[in-house]
């Protein structure tokens, strides 16, 4: 069926234009003098120098990393037990997975905006806390609101990834462990947990990556003063029109993401057992 082969060629041209060239443009502009087009050929490292010499930008980067790491940890702490419970639910686990997936189909912006009312000073959450004699606490425009918004949006990814690796596990491994005298905690720590490392690793990637680059969650729940690296990139392109600095920022962000993904994958290789 060689005649079908040519059917793939238009797409090869299409992705070269709409995927490869845009990526090359980002790299080219990151090394171009501000305000000039890349093909005028003015190579510079000034965009990177500007970033690393300005304490404000370093602080923004550190805050983005802190928020993303915090989000990832919370997702892991909530996601693992939830995925574990789903994997143990037997026949109902398909239904439970559907329940977890359903909200992810709804617009992230819509779901994030829903928290604005709940987190207000006189909102639902403060009313609930009031029943226990706590508060009212200021929640909007804080780290708490931003991390909560991110956990809300990205937790399903963590649950689904961990559930996939847990459900692939052969239950006879646990029987073997208990036959060999392991109690439930030992069996979990030495059999289940190591075997779910691949799921944990891809879960971490799927949460950390959008968390570190998000810009509308901090804007909606953190307010205009709450700036993460995504917000700086947005303003470089849509407000100040500085493509060169914006591209350099995205390149720095992409490198950090790739580096952290590389490190998490190593964790997988060192500790995990391929299932």
């Amino acid at each position: 069926m060689k005649q079908f082969r040519s059917m793939a060629y238009p797409y090869v041209a299409w992705i070269s234009v709409l995927i490869v060239i845009p990526m090359l443009l980002i790299i080219a502009y990151a090394f171009t003098v501000e305000g000039t087009a890349f093909f005028q050929g003015q190579f510079t490292l000034a965009n990177f120098a500007r970033f690393f010499s300005d304490a404000v930008f370093i602080q923004v980067l550190l805050r983005s990393l802190r928020v993303a790491i915090l989000t990832t940890i919370v997702c892991l702490l909530l996601g693992y037990p939830a995925a574990y419970a789903i994997a143990r639910a037997g026949k109902r686990s398909t239904f439970l997975i559907l329940v977890i997936t359903l909200p992810t189909w709804i617009n992230m912006l819509v779901r994030t905006y829903a928290w604005v009312g709940i987190l207000q000073d006189d909102g639902l959450l403060n009313h609930l806390l009031g029943l226990f004699g706590i508060g009212p606490l200021q929640m909007m425009y804080t780290d708490f609101a931003v991390v909560l918004g991110m956990v809300y949006n990205f937790l399903p990814f963590m649950i689904l990834e961990i559930h996939t690796s847990l459900s692939k596990m052969d239950p006879s491994f646990l029987e073997a462990a208990s036959d060999l005298g392991a109690n439930r905690t030992q069996a979990f720590l030495r059999v289940t947990l190591p075997m779910s490392v691949p799921g944990i690793v891809s879960g971490i990637t799927l949460v950390f990556l959008p968390a570190v680059s998000s810009f509308f969650i901090p804007k909606l729940l953190g307010g205009g003063q709450y700036v993460l690296i995504g917000n700086v990139i947005e303003s470089q392109f849509l407000t100040s029109g500085n493509w060169s600095f914006g591209s350099a920022l995205s390149l720095i962000m992409a490198i950090i993401i790739m580096l952290s993904m590389f490190l998490t994958r190593r964790l997988d290789r060192n500790r995990g057992i391929d299932v």
Partner: peptide, 28 residues
């Protein structure tokens, strides 16, 4: 080789943060 090249390029918008894909297209 062609298959895996297309696969790798396809992975770019899936693996990259949306904002990176977005600014690339904007500049293009």
């Amino acid at each position: 080789p062609l298959r895996s090249a297309v696969g790798m390029i396809n992975d770019l918008p899936i693996m990259n943060p949306d904002i990176v894909t977005a600014i690339g297209l904007l500049m293009f």
